[in-house]
Amino acid sequence: MCLGIPGQIVEITDKTRKLGLVDVSGVKREVNLACIVNEEHPVADCVGDWVLVHVGFAMSRIDEAEAAETLKILEQLGEVQDELAAMRASAEALGKAS
């Protein structure tokens, strides 16, 4: 259900109708921007926004900080695992040495 794909808004095509051109890996499509604009973020400010596109509508502005945060959590998982593995290895080494 609900195929959605990230794309970047590259051009506003119709300010009144809130339409803009979104680029997904070099493929462009006109989409409706109504769901991602408000008084603080008017249509004119949308160029450059990364959005989630579903059936020709930009449905959500992608939060770059949250995306980075999610990836960081996973990276830290790896770091913790590596540390644990290193500690285990050195403990073994110490065990052998003694």
Binding site: I5, I62, L71, G78, Q81
Partner: peptide
């Protein structure tokens, strides 16, 4: 593809699978 490829990284999957 931004916001797509980095969430298909098999290296990070390994960390998760270990935790799982």
């Amino acid at each position: 593809m931004k916001y797509v490829d980095e969430f298909r990284d098999p290296e990070k999957a390994k960390f998760l699978l270990r935790e799982i």
